[in-house]
Each structure stands twice: as C-alpha cells, then as structure tokens.
Amino acid sequence: MLTLFIQQVLNGLLDGVYYLLIALGLSLIFSLGGIVNLAHGAFYAIGAYLTIVLAPHIGFGGAMVASPLLVALMGIIVERGLFQRFYRSDPILSLLLTFGLAMVAEQSLRMIFGAPPLSFSIPPALRGQIFIGDFIYSRYRAMLLLIAAGCVLGLWFLLQRTAFGRVVRAGVQNPDMVGALGISLQPYMVAVAGIGIGLAGLAGVLLAPIYSIHPAMGQEIITPAFVVVVIGGLGSFWGVVVAALMVGLVKGITIGLGFTQWSTAVIYLMMLLVLLFRPRGLFGERIQRFE
C-alpha cells in the first residue's frame, strides 16, 4: 500500500509538469504586458489540431517542430494586431478581448474540423513502458517530461542569463525606467508573446497523443494553468515551476489517499488557501506596476 502511495506522489509530481508549459507562457505574457490571456488554451488546441494535419506529411517529429512555430507565428500576429492596443488599458478590457478570441478560435476549429473529437495515437516508435522497481511509467510521457524540462531550463537561461532576459525582467519591474534608458520594449513583447504562445502550441502537440482532441480542449487545460500561475505568484519564474509541481503533488496525494473524486477540487482549495495567506502567490515578487 505504501509503495502505491509513493508511486502516486511521484506520478503526481510528473503530472504537474504538463501544466508548466501552459502556465509559464501565461505568466510571462501577464507579467510583461498585463494581459490575462484567456485565449492561451485555444492556442494549445490549435497546436494539437495542427499536429493531426501535419503529422501524416512530415511525421510526428516534424510536427513537434513545425506546429509550435506556426502557433508562435499566430501569437506574434495576435500580439501585433490586438494585444499591443491593450497594454495601457484596464485588464478587464484585455480579458474581454482574449475571452472573445478564445471563442472565435474554438468555433473556428469546430467549423473546420467538426465537433466530434478526432483520433491521434502515440507513434509506434515511442510506445511502451518503463519499469523502475514497482513503478511503471509510459515511455512517451518520459520523453514528454524531458522536453518540458528542456523548455523550462531553456526559458530560465533566456530570462536569467542573457541580455534579452535582463531587459524583459526590467520591463516587468519598471517599464518606464526601461523606456527612459532608451530601450524599446516593443520587440521584447513580440518575442515574449511568440515564445509564450509557442509553448502552448508545443503542449498541444505533446498532449495530442494521450488526451482527447476536440475543439473545447483548451478550456480543459486553461483553468488549472491559471491556478498554477496564481499559486506560484506573478513575476516569479521558479514560483510557477514550484506551483506546478505542488499542484501535481497535492493531486497525487489526494488520489493516493483514496479521494479520487476530490482530485480536481483540491487544487482550487489550494489556490484559495494561498490567496488567503499570501495574496501575491507563494513566490510572487512585489511588482511596482501592480501595487
């Protein structure tokens, strides 16, 4: 029984990583531009549908590269065409904008691909399981974890160790000062939107073989991803990472203790507790603009 509990905890931790790719993009776009991107889930869905379209022609590996790039391109177009007009306005306006965008995207998927879910399987080469003692894990998920971990490290490096990252972090804290130093934030916003939304597209590709692919799939993932961002705290890279792992962990423990029916409710309970005691989130930094 104990080993099963440990397995559940371990599996929960791994589970949290799936939210990371979505949550990191959300957090980045919100921190820098103040946009709550409700359409983020829609880009995840578009990533999954693009995989179905592209994989028969260029293979799953090809789709894994091409779909996120195409989704990132869409993100850049949306940033230039829409987001940039709302950086200065009340967040409620951008909330309405992205809510509408999410609806348009979902309905477009429904019109193009139909409402019934579409099928897509793990490529034969990636099927199979890994056994570590009593613990069983799918080979495909192990690969998914490696890719997600690679993305997280890459993003961390980009934000913390490069000149690009320095400007982005400064922009999050104090855009006025960045402007006064003669640095235009505009290209950085374009890049952040591209990267953030591209990551959502990548999550869509990676989860397409194991989740049901249907037009509203974005809604399923966006809510837990928001919870992760809220728990982690704004502006904190590691906050989001830790929150994602914690959400998975708490889910794993809940299931391990036998309360399966509580496994989704428990993460909202956790968000409530965090907001009560640390309204800025667990690792949220004090961001001048949001105070």
Binding site: G34, V36, L38, L95, G179, T223, F226, V229, P279, E291
Partner: peptide
C-alpha cells in the same frame, strides 16, 4: 515606441481580479 508601457498602471487589486476571473472562467 520606447514609452510603450509608460502609462500602464494596474493596481494589484485589478491584477488579482483579472487573474481570478481568468481562473474561474
């Protein structure tokens, strides 16, 4: 466009309202 974000002023309350609404929608 160096003043792109110059006039952005979000209160923390607004930010939380925004995120909260996001999380519940």
């Amino acid at each position: 466009m160096s003043d792109l974000l110059k006039t952005t002023r979000l209160s923390r309350r607004q930010a939380l309202v925004g995120l909260g609404a996001g999380a519940t929608t």
